[in-house]
Nucleic acid binder design. Structure first.
Lengths: 213, 213
DNA sequence: GATTGTTTCATACGAACGTTTGAATGCAGC
DNA sequence: GCTGCATTCAAACGTTCGTATGAAACAATC
């Protein structure tokens, strides 16, 4: 008996999920990559769907916890007029850090490619797992941004928050789109570098004058 | 003989590709949705892979053509100092217009959900099809933005262009993330409305002071 | 109206899928 | 060393997958 069987399965699932998506990653390929028997999947997780949900819970849970801790710190420092850059940092840093974590034994895949992959997956399997993890976190950040930019009407507030999320999600893309765009001169493999570029962009976008009528 | 068989197959493929991804959408479900015989797929397209490539070519080709026409107009008006908003409009409008085109007979699916879906698909089938369609267009826009913002160092230029693309892609997302975020108060189903919100955000982000060292 | 070429159809192929089963294995406590 | 429980294993289940086949249906030419 090795208590690591579940862990090995989760690791392998992450990898193959990121590479082939939920329908393309077969339980056989996952079991083989994990070095465990095929039946172990259903023994430990019950079904393929539950296995995928477990992958979510393991990764997204800690990220959102950390986001909210950082957000609370920013809000506590100045409850009436919170620092916008701090809010954005809380939103972006935790996810980018795990997205750009170098692959390793316990972290076998560029998590960014998994996240973005599953973020856009229409299968209900994935959508449900994702929403469970994200719902309340998103609302907290919209609230906080609204406190920092109280003059924004709600519609514009939601749109711009939405754009911010888009930047983050897109930056986590597994295939290195930025490298392709820049013909290899810019590599997005570092959370701090990405953050340094992203925060001013997002802040300026959020603060843009409301020019449309 | 009905010349529409290929068209019906392409339409159905779009729909099911958007809903279930390239591995999840089976040829049987596609053929059934199209109301044609299963063997018609291999008769008209040769293979599932070729069918998917045909979907790309049909949709992405016209969008990128239109983008470049609009970009050329902006550049022609002021070659030395092109209008940044015009450039952004050329990048965003053509894709948002087809992304938010209401579903119809000839346009059976919210194309946005297909685009975003395939944009993040790691399968080589899709990656190749996508890159073929996008490569040169992307470079033209980076060049143009650089002309409008010549003070930006190339690294920052690429990063910020990358963020712009992220906003666009994310806004095309099929599942209505914005509606969920705003608890139904904001719906992103209209290209003009989205554009009106997006352009000021992107422009401000691109123009943000370069504060990182 | 027979011929030719194109397109549809029902059907079948082997492979791979998610899941299940029941026997083998390892390891506690006694 | 035997018992009881947790885990692993090889094998098989029925289903669905992408693809291939050969006959039927159709259209157009002469």
């Amino acid at each position: 008996m090795q208590p690591e069987t579940k862990t090995r399965l989760l690791n392998a699932t992450e990898l193959l999920l990121a590479q082939h998506g939920p329908t393309g990653a077969s339980l056989r390929s996952i079991a083989e990559a994990a070095g465990v028997n095929l039946a172990a999947v259903n023994y430990h997780f019950g079904s393929k769907e539950s296995l995928i949900h477990a992958v979510f819970a393991r990764r997204l849970g800690p990220v959102n916890e950390r986001r909210l801790v950082m957000l609370d710190e920013v809000l506590a420092a100045n409850p009436e007029n919170p620092d916008l850059r701090g809010i954005l940092r809380a939103l972006v840093l935790p996810i980018l850090e795990i997205a750009f974590l170098p692959p390793s034994e316990s972290n076998p895949v560029q998590l960014g490619s998994l996240m973005i992959r599953l973020y856009t997956e229409p299968a209900k399997v994935v959508e449900r797992g994702f929403n469970e993890q994200m719902a309340c976190t998103a609302n907290r950040f919209v609230e906080a941004i609204h406190k920092a930019l109280p003059h924004l009407d709600p519609g514009t507030l939601y749109w711009r928050t939405h754009f911010c999320v888009g930047c983050v999600v897109h930056t986590m893309h597994g295939r290195n789109i930025l490298a392709a765009l820049s013909k290899g001169t810019v590599i997005s493999d570092n959370a701090e570098k990405a953050l340094e570029q992203m925060i001013p962009f997002l802040e300026a976008g959020l603060r843009a004058g409301v020019t449309h009528e």
